[in-house]
Amino acid sequence: MSLTKADMIVQLYDKLGLNKRKAKELVEMFFEEICAALEIGEQVKLSGFGNFELRDKVERPGRNPKTGQKIIIAARRVVTFRPGQKLRSEVDSHVKR
């Protein structure tokens, strides 16, 4: 069982009384705008939740783990998520019980 966009749409409809079309648009746009910001090189900081950060990785030599062949891993930009203190402690206290 995992949480999906469909579950979020139902919540916006149930809890905020938004109509289903608007709820769907908002959920889609929420994720789209986060992606769009990261795409243009902006890090996304959602206080209380966490930060989506960008890292530029330099080119480095690597190996294909299956064939053992040497390859060059190209320079690339990656997204990492750093959870905020509030999210960390919420997760930790709930899961421990």
Partner: peptide, 21 residues
């Protein structure tokens, strides 16, 4: 709506539920 989405993600993670988008 934004707060609700973030809250729902946090609460789901807190009970060990995976979120997949």
């Amino acid at each position: 709506a934004v707060r609700q989405i973030i809250k729902q993600i946090s609460e789901s993670l807190s009970i060990g539920m995976r979120i997949e988008i």
